[in-house]
Structure formats: C-alpha cells, structure tokens
Nucleic acid binder design. Structure first.
Length: 572
RNA sequence: GGGCCUGUAGCUCAAUGGUCAGAGCAGGGCGCUCAUAACGCCUUGGUUGGGGGUUCGAAUCCCUCCGGGCCUACCA
C-alpha cells in the first residue's frame, strides 16, 4: 500500500467555474484519487478555494458584500457544486484560513532568514477615487502603437504589444473609469527566485516522464531572456494574509498583504492542517504528509492543474519550499491539461458563453458530465465541447452500452429466475474465454489509470462494458433456457457478476451510478477485481437483488437544441 | 517579435522509426429479440495539412510553407 498525496489547483473564489476549469484540475484529480483509494492505497486529496487578490475584492464590492462574507458565501457555493460533481476531497479548504495565514507568514520568515527576500521600493499607479493601487491589468487607455482605445496596462489585446501603464494614452481606472491617477511610491517584498535558478533547473531535470507541457513551460521561464526573474510577493491590499516575518511584525510592511500566488500553493499544506483540525487530530497527522522528516518520505505527491498554472507550480512554489531550508515534501508528478473550448470558441464568463458548473447540474446529474469531460480530457491539445458530441457520448456510452447492459441482465433474470442470483449450472468454455479477455482489459485499464492517461482509461473502461454485451449476445441465455435451464442460470449469474465488477471499476468515473448498481445488487463488496476469475464468483448464489431504475437516460434532440441555444451567450 | 504545442477517416481521437495507419461515433448490410427503437457481427471511408530531405524503412526525425491554439512573468 502506497501513500498518495493529491492536490488540485485551487479554483478562484470570484464566481462559479465552468466545465473547462473543472476538467483541467479537480475532475481528473478526483478520478485519480478515487482510483487509488479503490486500489487500497492511502490517499490524501486536497483542494481549496483561492480567496485573496484584487478580483475577489472587486467581486465582493459588486455583490455589495464585505469581502470576507462574500468569500465565505462563495466557498459554500463552490463546495456544494463540488459535491454535486462527486468530487471526493478529503478536505476542501480556504486560503483565507487561520492555518494558511500562519503558514504563509512562517514561510516568508524562513525565506527572509535565508536571505531570499529583497525589499524593493517602487512606484505604482494609485487611484484615489478607487482608494487602491491598480495592477497593470486594471488600467485601461489608448494603445500608443495601434490606437486601440481599450488597451490594458500590461498588453494591448488588439495588437498584442506589451505595454506598461505609463505608455498608455489617456489612462483610466478599469474599475471606475477614474482618470486622476497618480504614481505613488510603495515598498514590496520580492522572492529571489533567481538565486534558486540552478537548483530549480536541476530539480526539473531530475523529474522523469513529466508531460512535455509541464517541463517546456518551466524551462522557458528558467532560460528565457535573463533567466528566472525575482517575483513580487506582496501587494497593497486589505484582503489577504498580512505581511509578517513569521509571527513577528515586518517593519515597513504594515498594511500590506502577501500576493495570492505566494499564499495559494501554501494552502495545499494548510488545507491538510485544516483537515487534521476538522478531524480532531494533532499536527503529526498532517505533517506526516508534508514533512519528509516526519513521515512523508514515502509519500508520492501528484498535482493536477491547467497549463496556465504550471509556472507557479514548477518554479515559484518549489522555490518557496526549497528556500525555506526545511524538508517539505516536493511534488513528484505534475499532470497538466490544455483548455476545453466551447463550440469553436472560448468559455466566457462575461459573455455567458458555455456551460458552468451550476447550470450543468441543473440539466443532468454529475456523472453524465464526468463521463464526457473525462473521456474527452484535453490531454494532448485543447479539446472542444459540442452538444452533438456530448449527446452522442451520453446516449451511446452510458445509456446504451452500460445502462442497457445492466437493464437487460437484471430484467431477464428477474423475469425468468426471480430477483436473486440463480444457482444452476457451472461456467463453461465461453465464460473462461470472457474472463481471460476481461483480465487483459482490466490490466490495460489499470495501467492507464496509474499513468493518468485519462482518455485511454475511459476508452478501455468502455471496451470492458462492451465485453458484457458481446458475452450476452454469444451466450444468449434467452435461447439457452429453452433447452438447458441450468446453463442459462450460470450465464445469467456470470452476467450479474460482471455487473458488480462494472460498478467497482467504473466508480472513479461514475461514482453515483456505480453506487446505484451496488444498491440494486444489495452488495457492499467493493473489492477491486485483482483476480477476475474469482471476482466473477463474488455474488453468492441465491443472493437477492432488485431491478434498478434506468441507470442513465438519453438526451433528446430537442433538449440538445434547446441547451445549445441557451448557452450560446450573447456573442454571435 | 520570441517560445511551445498542434494538424491523421464526415466527427472525436489512437499508433516506443518497423506487418495491409487503428478505435469509437456517424453511414451501409446482416443477425438477435433478454434490454433504454437497445445489443452483436460484417462493412464503406485516409496521397497522415502542402512541398522537400535523412533512412533499407517516416504519421513519427530534419528543413520550409500554410492553418489552428497557448504562453510571454502586476488577473488568478
């Protein structure tokens, strides 16, 4: 039994995430966590909401709520949606927790002692009307290069020229439109990542088999231009982790907070501490996952994230951990994903384009979405959501192949032999052939799951479901029963056992439906079919079951058309 | 501008430099009747974006052109 630590990139607090966010981190992380638990490993699966930063403050202001209340409310919303999608976090924490405040300050203190923090005096744009410093991106103006009037202070979206706020013509606040902007001096802390460049480079080099997407992004940042640059880790904001040096004040930094990207990854650790607190356990319980000197030496740590998160997880966060000089557990494998696009374009919150988590659950249960998203995960490149494709996958894979298999087996058995596992006959040549085939496919399925090859795992799982229908067609118990009732009973018994195996192995993808199959079978034996031949005899003869309700319903053409219309957004 | 990824059947995707480039869906034919008008079997369909090169051998490696996407450090 191994110990596996799994973290999903933290969803940001300002609003409800869309399906692209879900499939890029939380969903595949959950798949992996569920699979590893099913195989008997000890798993710690951590996620949290990322609650700090300017966008959270603005979203709260827009909602007319104090930011702390807004975050608490939105955390609840995201938690409920996560539950709706069956995300099996051991703990879903909050980056605003007391644990994270303390740990973030601890790391800052350690980094300062190691000489890896530099205080930099700089000038930034301040907006008196907004009462805040404005990040470059929150300053708009006319692009000096192309004349585009809504260029942002970091880059012109029209001509892609990189800008600084000072270059903009007629700059104004993107928040309020205020034009009386001024430059103010302010002091910030920088993490001296450049001092750790060689260690980070060597560490990346020592990782074998990471996705190209992961290493190429890291290498680019390490070697581009002047190499890895230092990064500001504080901001002039009210909402966040107050800048402290450990638990001591940091002179000159009063009223400032740490930058979200400094405190957010630390929340992976803090959330594990929050978990221990919630379980009534002591610090040793979470430290055995994170401190290699306190039991984490045998932990395998896997992170899941969208490609936009890679630089922070390959460079900044590792720099924080390394720089602390303490033996914190570093990531062993980073699984990164490309983007999911919606019907030929991008998901867009502002334009209401695409499907968001709350709307998705209004239409169909989480399992339907889990199946489509995971079987089409954007692993090798961006992948596209279309309603036609979604409808086809759900109807064919879930309703016809798996759902109908369960239906035909249970109904036939109940009608001919009664609702219990029939006792007659023995497995014959055909059953042994199918058992061998099943063993081969199960091994392939396990290989793909362990390698986190999500789409291949889904394809293999589907092939295992198909095997059941092939078997029924070949065995044809509805014919057998006419001449040899005992043989037909054995065939049905075999199929019922297949059904239990399907529930067990499908659970990482379809937790809810798998649960319903097991309830129908009145079975609590979730043991993984490591020896398929024996697993095909797991259900005791005479064991009573119920014919389950329809496992998956189909999506009609009318629904598909209506949904496509509803979620098309304002843009043509 | 720079960097990275990508282009394979109508659609979504496979294929450590090595048999006739494979699946699923869609299309066509046949079979079955237990089942959610479902299932099974067979089958049509590809000059692997274009061109050049390396090699006994290229979807795969190199060059070039065309198309799509992402990143580029103060959104997170």
């Amino acid at each position: 039994m191994a110990r596996i630590l799994i973290t999903s990139a933290l969803p940001y607090i300002n609003g409800i995430k869309h399906l692209g966010n879900l499939v890029g981190s939380q969903l595949p992380a959950d798949l992996y966590a569920r699979y590893m638990r099913a195989r008997g490993h000890e798993v710690m699966f951590i996620c949290a909401t990322d609650e700090h930063g300017t966008p959270a403050e603005l979203a709260a202001a827009k909602a007319g709520e104090p930011v702390a209340e807004y975050c608490a409310r939105m955390h609840g919303v995201q938690k409920r949606l996560a539950d709706g999608f069956g995300l099996s976090f051991d703990h879903f924490g909050r980056s605003s927790s007391a644990r994270n405040h303390a740990l973030t300050q601890h790391f800052a203190g350690r980094l300062a002692e190691a000489g890896l923090i530099e205080e930099v005096e700089e000038t930034q744009v301040f907006s008196p009307d907004d009462g805040r410093f404005l990040p470059d991106r929150y300053i708009e103006g006319t692009c000096p290069a192309c004349g585009y009037e809504r260029a942002r202070g970091d880059q012109c979206e029209n001509c892609t020229k990189q800008l600084t706020p000072r270059e903009l013509v007629n700059p104004r606040s993107a928040i309020s439109g205020a034009t009386n902007l001024e430059l103010r001096a302010t002091k910030h802390l920088y993490l001296r990542q450049s001092a750790l460049k060689d260690r980070l480079d060597a560490w990346i080099d020592s990782q074998k088999g990471w996705p190209i997407l992961t290493t190429s992004i890291a290498k680019k940042w390490l070697h581009d231009g002047d190499g890895l640059q230092d990064r500001g880790i504080t901001r002039d904001l009210d909402w966040g982790v107050p800048v402290k040096r450990g638990d001591a004040p940091w002179p000159g930094m009063e009223g400032k907070v740490f930058y979200v990207w400094f405190d957010a990854p630390i929340e992976y650790i803090s959330a594990t501490a929050e978990w221990a607190d919630a379980q009534g356990l002591d610090d040793a319980a979470w430290r055995r996952w994170w401190r290699t000197d306190e039991g984490a030496g045998d932990v395998r740590y896997v992170q899941f994230m969208g490609k936009d998160n890679v630089p922070f997880h390959t460079l900044s966060f590792p720099a924080t951990l390394m720089g602390s000089g303490e033996p914190w557990k570093m990531v062993d494998y980073i699984k990164s994903f490309n983007y999911l696009t919606y019907d030929g374009g991008q998901f867009s919150t502002s334009q209401g384009r695409g499907v968001f988590m709350d709307h998705a659950l209004e239409l169909l249960p989480g399992d339907y979405w889990r199946w489509w998203l995971l079987s089409h995960a954007p692993e090798t490149g961006d992948s596209e959501f279309t309603w036609e494709n979604f409808q086809a996958s759900v109807n064919k894979d879930l309703a016809d192949v798996l759902g109908n298999f369960v239906s035909r087996v249970t109904k036939f058995c109940a009608a001919r032999f009664g609702p219990q596992v029939p006792a007659g006959g023995d497995y014959g040549a055909l059953e042994h052939v199918v058992a061998d085939e099943l063993a081969g496919k199960l091994a392939a399925y396990a290989r793909h799951m362990e390698a986190m090859e999500v789409r291949k795992a889904a394809a293999e799982l589907r092939a295992i479901w198909v095997l059941g229908n092939e078997y029924l067609q070949e065995a044809a118990p509805w014919s057998t029963i006419k001449s040899d009732e005992a043989a037909a009973e054995a065939q049905v018994r075999f199929a019922l056992n297949l059904m239990r195996i399907y529930a067990v192995i499908s659970r990482p993808f379809l937790p809810e439906a798998s649960g319903r199959i097991m309830v129908a079978l009145a079975c609590a034996d979730w043991s993984w079919p490591v020896a398929p031949a024996r697993a095909l005899e797991a259900l005791p003869v005479g064991h009573a079951f119920e014919v389950p309700e329809m496992l998956f319903r189909k999506i009609t053409d009318e629904e598909r058309a209506a949904w496509a219309e509803r979620f098309a957004g304002v843009r043509a």
